[in-house]
Design a protein around this nucleic acid. Structure first.
Lengths: 166, 166
DNA sequence: CTTATTACGGATATTTATTATCCGTATTTA
DNA sequence: TAAATACGGATAATAAATATCCGTAATAAG
């Protein structure tokens, strides 16, 4: 079981967008080139982020993407769920119903308490999501700023600016 | 992203084995029939559990599987990792190295601190595993005993006994 | 000793998910 | 009007999950 690499791409792209001056934008093409990842395929991830309301895209030349709200109000969970879906990592297929002496499955429309096995897995899933929800893009930016050499940060920012004005 | 259903099967099979009297065994064939799942494919999951030292299989007629140690010493994490692998759900492909102005990747043999994005994902992964590790098969058995009707429990046990003596 | 039953492991097929590309449309700036 | 962009649909390529088959070795029972 593995998250798709859309997740990694989306997180890194959002990290870049979080460092962007207000009212500036970066087109998908540049985000792809910056990270050395396939442009067309990255677009799908960005579109997912956009339709989830995390980033906002504008058309036309000078168009591109920017964060749709403040970095402090975007969590890792928001991004992961936008790209990966909100479905749980463990899916219960109710194999208890297949046992020779099983309780009757609930009537259509009615629900039943999940089985004990599923509940443990769901709780673990919840712990995972809970941690992702506790970290925002603002937190990430603070960490990056602290541990990535200024030379690297400035270098990449300048590369972006140069490309956008070319 | 979704766990394979080997995980669900393995957990339910271990749950059944945990309720088994000491020194009794259940063959893969019966475990599959009991849960209504494909026998040959379930075997792969059981073999994974076996080679991880969670269950132990014996050959020959009257052979089959039993837990390799006490239910209180087998955690959900043990089972999940046995069938799903110990690999992390998030894999970092180090796309930071692709940036135009990147730090040099470490020399072969040397390591580097994972990037800030990866660390958050790793911590979430750790939270997930930590919860799975906190629940044992003994805990599960206690819950099952409390909430599954006695009629169902006895019915399935009798079905098993009858099949094994047939 | 023979036979039936079992775990185990290798090989292979089938199905589904992920990864990736291509292209047409609508929108916007210059 | 032309160039650049996001967006969405369609499709292809690759990898992973799901499933089956079969040969081998071990073991209990007749």
């Amino acid at each position: 079981m593995q998250l798709k690499n859309h997740v990694e791409w989306a997180l890194h792209c959002c990290s870049v967008l979080a460092a962007l001056p207000e009212d500036e934008r970066i087109p998908a093409k540049l985000l792809a080139e910056l990270h050395g990842i396939p442009r067309e395929y990255l677009s799908k991830a960005l579109q997912a982020l956009s339709s989830a309301g995390i980033i906002s895209g504008t058309l036309g030349p000078t168009g591109g993407y920017k964060l749709a709200r403040a970095p402090g109000r975007i969590t890792f969970l928001d991004i992961v769920e936008a790209v990966e879906g909100k479905g749980r990592t463990f899916v219960c297929t109710e194999i208890r119903d297949n046992m020779p002496c099983a309780e009757k499955p609930p009537a259509k429309g009615k629900t039943r308490r999940p089985c004990a096995v599923a509940r443990v897995m769901y709780d673990a899933d919840k712990a995972w999501r809970s941690h992702l929800q506790s970290v925002t893009l603002a937190d990430l930016a603070k960490t990056v700023e602290k541990e990535v050499p200024l030379r690297v940060l400035k270098g990449n920012a300048e590369w972006l600016a140069a490309k956008r004005n070319a």
